[in-house]
Design a binder for these strands. Sequence first.
RNA 1: GCGGCAUUGGCGUAAUUGGUAGCCGCGCCAGACUUAGGAUCUGGUGACGCAAGUCGUGUAGGUUCGAGUCCUAUAUGCCGCACCA
Length: 851
Amino acid sequence: MPAEQYAIQTGTHPEVTTAKNIARYREQLSKIGFCYDWDRMVRTCDPDFYKWTQWAFIQMFNSYYDQEADKAKPIAELVKRFEKEDPTWATKTEREQQEILMNYRLAYLADTKVNWCPALGTVLANDEVSEGLSVRGGYPVEQRVMRQWSLRVSAYAQRLLEGLDRIDWSESIKETQRNWIGRSEGAEMLFQIKGLDEAFTIFTTRADTVFGVTFMVLAPESEYVQKVVTAEQQAEVEKYLQWVKTRTERERIADRKVTGVFAGSYAVNPLTNKEIPIYISDYVLAGYGTGAIMAVPAHDSRDYAFAKHFGLPIIPLIEGADVSNESFDAKEGVMMNSGFLNGMQVKDAIAAMKAYIEKEGIGRVKVNYRLRDAIFSRQRYWGEPFPVYYKNGMPYMLPEECLPLQLPEVDKFLPTETGEPPLGNARVWAWDTEHKQVVDKSLIDNKSVFPLELCTMPGFAGSSAYYLRYMDNHNNEALVSKEANNYWQQVDLYLGGSEHATGHLIYSRFWNKFLFDLGYICQDEPFTKLINQGMIQGRSNFVYRYIGEGATGNLFVSFNLIENPEYKDKVQPIHVDVNIVHNDLLDVQAFRSWLPEYKNAQFIYSDGSTDEDNPYIGQATPKQYICGWAVEKMSKSMFNVVNPDDIVAKYGADTLRLYEMFLGPLEMSKPWDTNGIDGVHRFLKKLWNQFENLSDDEPTPDELRSLHKLIKKVTWDIEHFSFNTSIPAFMIAQSELSKCSKKQILKEFAVLLAPYAPHIAEEMFSLCGGVGTVFDAKWPECNEKYLEESNVKYPVQFNGKVRFTIELPKTASREEVEKAVLQDEQTPRFLNGGSPKKIIVVPGKIVNIVV
RNA sequence: GCGGCAUUGGCGUAAUUGGUAGCCGCGCCAGACUUAGGAUCUGGUGACGCAAGUCGUGUAGGUUCGAGUCCUAUAUGCCGCACCA
């Protein structure tokens, strides 16, 4: 998208921009010393790669979800079934047959209400829209109906949900996906419309509350709206519907005021046979359930607010529930006012009512999912073309052997003047079915040459299965060979941001399960283990501009003084470039030359003095201006951006790597504060100095102990992704071994350090006589023999408080330890005249005496 | 509103199975070397207290010989979802 935006602005082909960005990223990754097997590189915009994206799309088009088998199957099997079971099938025209099949295909065309963004000339997915504005660009988005490709992700809802229990992902991201899938068990019920031979279906999770239904509500977009509007109400309803249309998504969400309108008609409560009014309100969403609800104001807070506003009756259904001021939403208590449900617990009442509904044929038990199908068309240029041509308005797939269908050249990357997507600008963009090739559009005759699809695929098309391609990226015969797939199986560890929770990580799982169903791959989940790395946040600094009486806009107050009465509420915090602040002290000269507006900046320093008090600022005893700080997103506008390239240039990649790990646990977000970096840099320098005069002497037991302690720690840390705790271990070992220059020790040290600080470790390894690269060296093994201590230092507690420690042989038995502690000269002091009530000895750990 | 995660010195953090809270680093303080220091080295640094000692892991309870760790409630912050029936 940025590449396409750039193309629109400058005419530079997105391919050029993308190639440049890839090169830049690769350079940066290399600079930091990341190891990748570049032979396995894939690029989703490369025709050799997107051939398989198109191939997968064709498979989805040619598949349906078999509910009984609970998996995807070839659509040919469904056709066979229709031929066998439906006598009218053969009498239908091809077009009719195709239209029916479209309701089953996993990739299908449908009229969808979409988020249309006029400024971008494109449709956005739900997760690409935020508060009525496009996530990228921030343009207004409106609702519009459009015929688009969709992927039937919803068919996999239950399996996507169940699969979560079998994968080792963070609880937070699994929970996010569970919520996104949104399974709810409930019932669908029919409500007759009075005076019409029509009924509409509602979905409810609270079947037990039917006796308390006092009105119905339809979503403004519901197809039933026109049917239930009476002549008298027509004008008012129209007015309301028009008003709803003008509301942006943002307003609909943010505004919690009750709005709605009476439709004029009544429905009949199937249990009480009472007539209840039908309303239209935008608090009911068209996209969820059936777009219609039965309102139970006593036990649903939104229904309650609506009933209060329109003066509708509220019937409490649970004994003891006070609904005079708010609804009682909890699913607990004993039923009342509910006919045959009276006296039952809510849970039992729900079950009883569901059974009743099915028995009486007024509805059915239903599981509802919030998860919606993914819209798969984009009105953009820079994406994978669909391998699709249109015959009589019906889509047909290109033969698989003709893939990839390459993206055509266009003059401009904008939508056409007639509102077609950018591919409408391509001249050579028609499919010749006889010669099986792309030909000039002027040749379209709708007999053997047909128009090609003008939309392209979205970003997640290429990113959904790329990991499978890593397994076998040079294979021209298959996405991945059986052999390669059986060898690699699935991704062992996926390290990624949590922002992908409801997008990429759902689509990938869907895509993978689909390929699994068709037998192309051997695992139904793509990513065994997933870790969300924390975000590196920015640490901003502030100066405080005086805005009180007599302010010139040029005076800045030190942070430590801003709470003083003369400055309190009279200063305005202003972001200042973190690069001219050191340990929260402002470089005032640099500040004055930073931006022209600060050229004549004056300061009230930390001791309350001003520039005039000391004309020799910056010389003998510099006064200090203290800055405030805050943790915020790293962003240019907050002047807290730190470029890794600059850090590498100044300290080297190894220091950058060590410091980044040192900041804290992998999964945790943390602020980047360059000020602490000297610590790890010093460590590397000190360690490096030990390699000056290397010796071949035999190591002492102490040296071996330090080394093997380190081996044990670092090995454990790596296996547990606890890289931050390794750095202190290295520092401690370095400090213990600071006098050691023995190759035997330092060589192993270098091997341990290699994953953390690869460049310097490689040098160190070589200096110690290591052969080849350190990365091929055998990982050191911890020998417990060197760690054994003959004595244990027991902390001795009295009533849980540590009073002293006592050193005893490791072999001492429980009784011996107890005896030794009681005989210790310090013990009587803490017994305080009393006698030990109980003595707990944990061998090798601790002693606790209860007095 | 629902769900997840977090809360430990001035700061980033550590404490791996319920067993000496604060490792390591930054910052700060003192000293050494130095013409000088945003260099290097050494020592100190949770709070209160002269000390013995007392207190101390957001808050309030609980379990336990013993709780940063387990349980209950609660506050605050961050993230995700949301007029979701």
